[in-house]
Design a protein around this nucleic acid. Structure first.
Ligand SMILES: [Mn+2]
Ligand SMILES: [Mn+2]
Ligand SMILES: [Mn+2]
Ligand SMILES: [Mn+2]
Lengths: 230, 230
DNA sequence: TTTTGTTTTTAGATTTGTCTAAAATTTATT
DNA sequence: AATAAATTTTAGACAAATCTAAAAACAAAA
């Protein structure tokens, strides 16, 4: 079970990009996908026809598109591989947070199912990659983690850093300098309306100030008491 | 230094196969390479032109070919990657000896130089892969290990198993059954001229019999006192 | 040294993935 | 509603890697 279906590198990259784009918008557009993949709209249209042919997405010309069930399953498997390899690179090979994406972009295309399940076990079934993004499990279950930007939260709240939107070396530097990493708990102490900067406090440390740009890119667990559903 | 040159998967596979073939024969032939790569002679000729164009080998039509210095360097880097990944798969992910080649055949094409050097360090700079083949170091130095088939050695000698020529599951089974693995020291006790089978003895174990076919595929360190050179 | 057989190369096609330029379609603006 | 602008698709081309069938070169045998 869970066989070893293999698509071309390019197809896999398309599937993955479509998956990410349709998380945000419902339907994906040709231009958006071309931008995400650094390719041309005409090339995207070509690929869409092939993916439709292979029954991986729903697509009517001029109407936008989105993955169907098959396509979503395939995309999630690639994301699983990508994130597990990123975790491996950071935790076992001492890579920095900002160095791993490119390499994982290649490793994610290595086919063997057994390889990735063994890697998962070797790593101790991690739940999130080095950027805080959740890792799908062997069955393709992808936990939906509600993340909220630090800049959107009210004063006084204590939250846990669970991800970063901007994964550049510069962003990494700021966070390291302020002793903030994934899992760090912090309290929002003060907001300066003048520049929308925040003062936050990490346990056992003096408070630090984060610019609006930084705060916007720090994602935290939304521990908000769940809106009751009945 | 040691930059990150990248060729296509197919070119890398060709370089590697040529390297292996020219170890045995000096000059490589079109047919031999086609057989090794499971492709057609015409396709090989096409690729040879491209590799010559890129100055990776010496080739005159109808005259055979062999890698030049550049080509040899490239091939060794791929072999380094292949064997390090094989070692990783067996030692860290608990793969069997006979399962790793296919997977390494894909992993070897992942580009990052830094990745492979970090992997090397993570693994403790192993000297040989799970089949006993030597792993080139970061500078591309590939130790020439003199290996001799068990069937070619005189009676009474004690030798150390350092490789296997046939890497099938069936061969693995025979060796495991007889408690022989890489590094095992054994003594050749008896030869039966009738079927060329051998009796060998591993320390602290009862002697076992190996068929001629098995013995031929067991490679051992040639501890022969070096022929003096002056 | 012809003849025969084998190896290698060429000629021409095919598949996959990409591109540019132009046409078609949809969306937004007067 | 007509026009303008943006998006998307098509048409046609190209590079890479492969293939089959036929031709060319080389090697072996008669
Ligand atoms: Mn990728
Ligand atoms: Mn990530
Ligand atoms: Mn390979
Ligand atoms: Mn090996």
């Amino acid at each position: 079970m869970a066989p070893n279906i293999k698509y071309s590198v390019s197809k896999e990259d398309h599937l993955k990009a479509i998956f990410h784009l349709q998380q945000e918008q419902g339907m994906v557009t040709t231009n958006a996908l071309a931008a995400a993949l650094q390719t041309r709209p005409a090339s995207v249209t070509d690929m869409l026809k092939k993916l439709k042919e292979q029954k991986l997405l729903n697509y009517e010309r001029y109407k936008g598109f989105k993955l169907n069930n098959e396509g979503r399953k395939a995309a999630v498997q690639i994301i699983r591989k990508h994130r597990l390899w990123e975790y491996f690179l950071v935790k076992k090979l001492q890579f920095g947070w900002d160095e791993v994406h490119e390499i994982a972009e290649e490793l994610e295309h290595v086919g063997s199912r057994k390889l990735i399940d063994r890697l998962d076990a070797f790593l101790g079934f991690p739940e999130a990659d080095p950027h805080g993004d959740p890792i799908p499990d062997s069955q393709g279950r992808l936990p939906v983690r509600r993340q909220v930007s630090l800049s959107q939260l009210p004063l006084g709240k204590t939250v846990q850093v669970s991800g970063v939107a901007s994964q550049t070396p510069e962003m990494l530097e700021v966070l390291q300098y302020n002793h903030i990493q994934l899992g760090t708990r912090l309290e929002i102490r003060k907001k300066f309306p003048f520049d929308d900067s925040l003062e936050v406090k990490v346990r056992n440390r003096p408070p630090v100030t984060l610019s609006a740009q930084v705060a916007k890119n720090v994602l935290v667990n939304d521990d908000e008491p769940q809106t009751e559903r009945r």
